[in-house]
Design a protein around this nucleic acid. Sequence first.
DNA 1: TCTTTTTTGTCATTTAGATGTCACATATGT
DNA 2: ACATATGTGACATCTAAATGACAAAAAAGA
Lengths: 217, 217
Amino acid sequence: MKLLLIEDDIDITNNLKLLLKENNYEFDNAYNITEGINKLSNNYDLIILDISLPDGNGFSFYKNHLLAKNIPVVFLTAKDDEDDIVNGLELGAEDYITKPFSSKELLARIKRILLKKEKNKIIEIEDIKFDLEKMKVTKNNKEVKLTSLELKILYLFFTNLNKVITRESIIENIWNWTGNDVNDNTVTVYLKRIREKLGDNIIITVKGIGYRVDYEK
Amino acid sequence: MKLLLIEDDIDITNNLKLLLKENNYEFDNAYNITEGINKLSNNYDLIILDISLPDGNGFSFYKNHLLAKNIPVVFLTAKDDEDDIVNGLELGAEDYITKPFSSKELLARIKRILLKKEKNKIIEIEDIKFDLEKMKVTKNNKEVKLTSLELKILYLFFTNLNKVITRESIIENIWNWTGNDVNDNTVTVYLKRIREKLGDNIIITVKGIGYRVDYEK
DNA sequence: TCTTTTTTGTCATTTAGATGTCACATATGT
DNA sequence: ACATATGTGACATCTAAATGACAAAAAAGA
């Protein structure tokens, strides 16, 4: 698990670095927002974010860069102003901790968040298992060879379980960013191919709307 | 959203009751574990749980009765012993707050938890359940197969509960954007078909005006 | 390089089921 | 009772999705 701390206080940074490395997390840090933005491409599992930073405000950084990416965030700040806490949590932060904080508590709160992610790394539906990290799919524990597009489409479903996904949305996610548009029926054909490999029942057709993969936990 | 507070302190109970009712949550409380167990059948959306209770320990109550049910829990306790916090969070609690606490913060933390639940919103009216994300309807927990237009019309009602929807408004929402106009009676026929599948009582006719689906929360 | 295999995107066709309208029946308010 | 609004069953037509087959493009092997 890779964590990023964005915080300008050197003492706090060093303490957390020690604490988190001790607990087998990969740790990285940034002293300001600009530096933080540059590091974002490293796909962190969680970001600990100070609110008042030398070159800007943690809240707006969160809104502009993290919210859409779906990266869990813990705000960490000296401002124990109630409204700030409310603000942070309402924005969608996973947790909010005020300085001075207990290392043990911070650690416990981080663990709580990461535990959920951990659980989702391999999703199991009926006889199908999808390992999201390895990007590997098995049926009855036997690897299923999916082509790269089939895999991407299936990934879309497995990261949006229980949600209807429209044909348009699939096109947008899989093809659009490439520029060249694709026939509407193409999606249908891909769904058919995936079903051939995984069985007919895993992807549910919602007529007139789209498709869906259900996950009953 | 229905909350249950299990706490033996009467002052705290009254304060929270006020706070939460003010914020449109259904509130219920128990003064001890035995009482709490008896109330569990009410299917609460979240439980706020004190740790030291007159007839037992909150942690073991959580382990024995709540963990399997998957009800989110916020521990609320005077013991701000670090180890307790770690303990609580590691058990799987959604959050942990120590007394004395700020009402605003508690509220924000509760909201964070419930917001996630909200996302897979399922509206339940009598024996009918409509899962808005899955776009799936059940009656007595058995899936009802609706056609795409039937589903869209029903969706319109379920996202406009307690409001009369005129025939024109239905046509506008379901057909108009397609360009080709549709006979007035068509709506009636669709309503009839939906009623055939879901029962006559769910969609109420408001003579001379339109139709309505009622939701008493 | 050239050859072979796999992937990709598009057709045309099939199919089950959805759709829209009619003519008539029934219910409701005054 | 009357007028009007709403409900109903039957019907012809239409459509979304599934499918099998194919050529172009890309990737893998030789």
